[in-house]
Structure formats: structure tokens, C-alpha cells
């Protein structure tokens, strides 16, 4: 299959055969060239600069001094907040990633049931994703307040005394997960697009063969949705590790650093404590962790992701 694609013979180029072969190598590069150019122009430089500065003590205002690996040493050996924020982020990701995927998938499947008014339901579910960060944080502050919050007000109606969500170490992270799940609209939409791409004929054929709904879901829907799931898993992991806005605006990392996300740690080191070199070292470590996780998921994908049009390497 791969061979036929690369050396696909076009009738009129017999004479220029040599040139044609060259084109085959150039064409794919032409397609991806916008990204390659953009990467070299806007991403690579700043990225390497941050690596370079991670070996310096740079208070942003003022001069940078070379300190070798000291930033990295401090980070691993002498900074409890580094471990604390890493642990918080891992806990958050462990809760948020699976929940986000499941909620988005369930909502997408429900919306895929040809119900009346589906375009309105779709809009409702997507709506929270439209609201910008500042207002979002204010809304959640109003929901989660222990004494005066609306969530505990509703709980009190059914005789439950709700916790002080944002001021109890056990609950604050859960509140963060809930607030983050509220913005699942993007994932839901991507799932929905994936679901709609699955032909109804497959289900009809399966029904004729006597497969029930559950079997259909596991034998048809799920396998054909795997490319979408792969995408959502990877982007949700990245989002979980970059979670910052809510923590910054809602809890400020508290109580007792229980919502002190790694991204917030990086942010505060840079813009509150003005240790740009140290912050760069932090960021590079996070970068490597997320990259490692992603590569793991990606490498595993050949075992569970099913592409219909895949160029299989035999």
C-alpha cells in the first residue's frame, strides 16, 4: 500500500522519471512546511532560550548569572513545593483525565440519539466553554462558597451540610475537578463529530446479525472512535498539566497548597518571585514529563487505535 502511494505512476511523466521521484519526496514536505517554518520561526528559538536560561539565576529585572545545574539541584533536593505541586497535579490529572473523557463521551452518545431539540442541548452543553476565564472563576466562587454558596444552599434544602469547598484541603481539589469538567464542551464536540462519522449502515447490519446495543457499542462504536479517543486522551493530559487559570483565580493554590498546581508553581516562580531561570528549569522538567506520558500513550496507540485509512507498515 505504501509503495503504491509513493511511486504512484502518472501516465505522462515517463520521460521525466528521475525528476518525478524527487517530487515524491518534496511534496509531503511542502504540505507540512507551514508548520515547520512556524516552528523554526516562533517556537524553537524561545524554547531553546528557556533551556539556556534555566542554567542561570535571572531575576528578570537585572543581570543573569550562570549557575550551572544549581536550579535543577535546588528543585529536586531542596524545594518541598516542587514535590507538593507535582503531587497535586498528578492527583488532579488522575481524577480529571478519565472523568473528562467519560463525561464528554456519555454526553456525546446521548446527543447522538436523534433526540428532538438536539441542537439546543448541544448548545447548552457547549455554552460553558464559551465563557472567558475571569467570569468563570467568579461564577465558581459563587457556587462553592462554604457559607453563602449556591451549591451548599441546594444541599441544605435536602438536609446535607456541604463542606467549605474551597477552604478544606480534602475538597478543594475536587471542587477544581468539578469546575474543570464543566468546560468539557470541546471534548464532547470532538466525540460527537467522531460519532457522526460512523456509518449507520454498520449498526443496521449488526442489528440484523442480532447484536444488542451493548455489543454494538463495544464492537462498532468504541473501535471506530479510538482515533478520537487517542486525541482526547492526549490533549486532556496536556490540559491537566497546564491547568492554571482556575487555581490562580479561585483558590490561589490553597488551602495549604492543596490546589497548588505545577503550572501555578512555574507561574509564581516566574512572575511572583521573579526567578525566571528557576522557573525555566521547572518548566523544562514538566515538559519532559508530559512528553514522556504522551509518547507512552502514543506508542501504545498502535495496539488499540484503529485507523480505517491507515498506511500500515508491514
Amino acid at each position: 500500500m505504501m509503495k503504491s502511494l509513493l511511486a504512484s505512476p502518472t501516465p505522462y511523466v515517463e520521460i521525466k522519471r528521475k525528476k518525478k521521484i524527487k517530487w515524491d519526496k518534496v511534496v509531503p514536505l511542502l504540505f507540512i512546511s507551514p508548520w515547520v517554518i512556524g516552528f523554526l520561526a516562533f517556537t524553537l528559538g524561545p524554547l531553546l532560550y528557556s533551556l539556556f536560561i534555566s542554567f542561570y539565576d535571572w531575576p528578570v529585572v537585572g543581570k543573569a548569572t550562570f549557575i550551572g545545574l544549581d536550579n535543577y539541584k535546588t528543585m529536586f533536593m531542596d524545594d518541598p513545593l516542587f514535590w507538593q505541586s507535582l503531587w497535586v497535579t498528578v492527583k488532579f490529572a488522575a481524577l480529571f483525565v478519565p472523568l473528562n473523557i467519560v463525561v464528554a463521551l456519555v454526553l456525546a452518545i446521548l446527543l447522538n440519539q436523534n433526540v428532538k431539540g438536539h441542537s439546543f442541548f448541544r448548545t447548552f452543553f457547549y455554552l460553558p466553554s464559551v465563557i472567558s476565564g475571569v467570569a468563570l472563576a467568579m461564577i465558581w466562587a459563587w457556587v462553592f462558597n462554604g457559607e453563602y454558596g449556591i451549591l451548599n444552599y441546594f444541599l441544605s434544602l435536602v438536609d446535607i451540610t456541604g463542606p467549605n469547598w474551597l477552604n478544606e484541603t480534602g475538597w478543594a481539589l475536587i471542587a477544581m475537578v468539578i469546575a474543570s469538567l464543566w468546560g468539557q464542551g470541546t471534548m464532547m464536540l470532538i466525540f460527537l463529530a467522531g460519532l457522526k462519522g460512523i456509518s449507520g449502515e454498520l449498526y443496521e447490519a449488526a442489528s440484523i446479525d442480532g447484536a444488542n446495543k451493548l455489543t454494538q457499542f463495544f464492537k462498532i462504536t468504541l473501535p471506530l472512535l479510538t482515533p478520537t479517543i487517542l486525541f482526547n486522551v492526549i490533549t486532556t493530559i496536556i490540559a491537566a498539566f497546564q491547568q492554571l487559570t482556575l487555581a490562580l483565580l479561585l483558590t490561589g493554590g490553597g488551602p495549604l497548597n492543596s490546589t497548588y498546581f505545577y503550572a501555578m508553581y512555574v507561574y509564581e516562580n516566574a512572575f511572583k518571585y521573579f526567578k525566571m531561570g528557576y522557573s525555566s528549569a521547572n518548566a523544562w522538567f514538566m515538559f519532559l514529563i508530559v512528553l514522556g506520558l504522551t509518547m507512552l500513550v502514543f506508542k501504545s496507540s498502535s495496539a488499540w487505535v484503529y485507523y480505517e485509512g491507515e498506511v500500515k507498515k508491514k
Binding site: 507540512i32 508548520w35 515547520v36 516552528f39 516562533f42 517556537t43 528559538g45 524561545p46 524554547l47 532560550y49 528557556s50 536560561i53 528578570v60 492526549i234 490533549t235 496536556i238 498539566f241 497546564q242 503550572a263 512555574v266 507561574y267 516566574a270 512572575f271 525566571m276 522557573s279 525555566s280 518548566a283 523544562w284 514538566m286 515538559f287 508530559v290 512528553l291 504522551t294 509518547m295 502514543f298
Partner: peptide, 20 residues
Amino acid sequence: LFMVLLATMMIPWEVTMIPL
């Protein structure tokens, strides 16, 4: 290259902002 592309999604902006 695709891995590089995916990797660029993970760059924390806090530290590339100033060089950019």
C-alpha cells in the same frame, strides 16, 4: 516530526513568553 509537533503543545508559555 510529529512527536515534535505534539511536544510543542506541551510547552509552558510562562517561560517562552519573554523570549517570544
